[in-house]
Design a protein around this nucleic acid. Sequence first.
DNA 1: TTGCGTGCAAAGGTTTTGCATGGCA
DNA 2: TGCCATGCAAAACCTTTGCACGCAA
Lengths: 136, 136
Amino acid sequence: MKPYKTAGRERLLEFLSRNPDQHFTAEEICIAVHGATARQSSVYRHLSELCTRDVVRKFRDEETAKTRYQYVGERCDCRNHFHAKCLRCGKLEHLDCGDSVEFAGHLLAEHGFSVDCGQSILYGVCARCRAAGGLA
Amino acid sequence: MKPYKTAGRERLLEFLSRNPDQHFTAEEICIAVHGATARQSSVYRHLSELCTRDVVRKFRDEETAKTRYQYVGERCDCRNHFHAKCLRCGKLEHLDCGDSVEFAGHLLAEHGFSVDCGQSILYGVCARCRAAGGLA
DNA sequence: TTGCGTGCAAAGGTTTTGCATGGCA
DNA sequence: TGCCATGCAAAACCTTTGCACGCAA
């Protein structure tokens, strides 16, 4: 089942890839791609397909009990580094640095815990939001 | 609104606190505390109240699209260390060690990212499951 | 022409809420 | 006596699915 190149699919992918630092609810994506709340089914279908390809990632927003989707793209092998997600602006940083690897090694050596970086997300406040918003 | 000491509430709390290494769905808790699937509303009400007190934590199980609840208790200040959750058995480890603090410091110094340890969960496979299950 | 994509509506499943009753303090 | 807890049912909510039609290849 190879995906066809259709207008709806293109618009969705273009919208998400143009905002890789942000995450959106299904509803927001519907509105952005079309102009309405309707036509959800196609959007959901695209999103789940893109998630299985690891082009898009799902995040759970416990505040609103909604799933949020974010573009990740083919750029990286996300299984080998941690991710830091900003609780204020939603920005996702790929911590592709040595210390990630080192910390993962520590977890394995000291705690016997084999961490799956790809699924492990560190939540906090990013540099820009700290500068802008005060505290934390 | 201080909670009364009622039989239902006591049973729920006792069940969860007796199994701090495990996580349960609302349905499982209903069955364990009562003998049926019914009486959900009280269970949900207790759980959300306990979550706001940080006695219990919620986890999202993407596989089943259900929320799972796990006892954390008053024992610790979970804001100051990371948590490692086993994807196989559900065990939650509190990584209350120096390296957690060190890694958090690195994130702040090198990436400007102020991590909220309490919300950051590292997923992987724990020592026991690695020994038992092979791979990973 | 084949078969995936789309849209609408309806279903599915979990969680929340309203309301009357019961129990703790 | 006052207020919270409980149970049931219904609602709310997000997400998935069925089906007929449309469109890409």
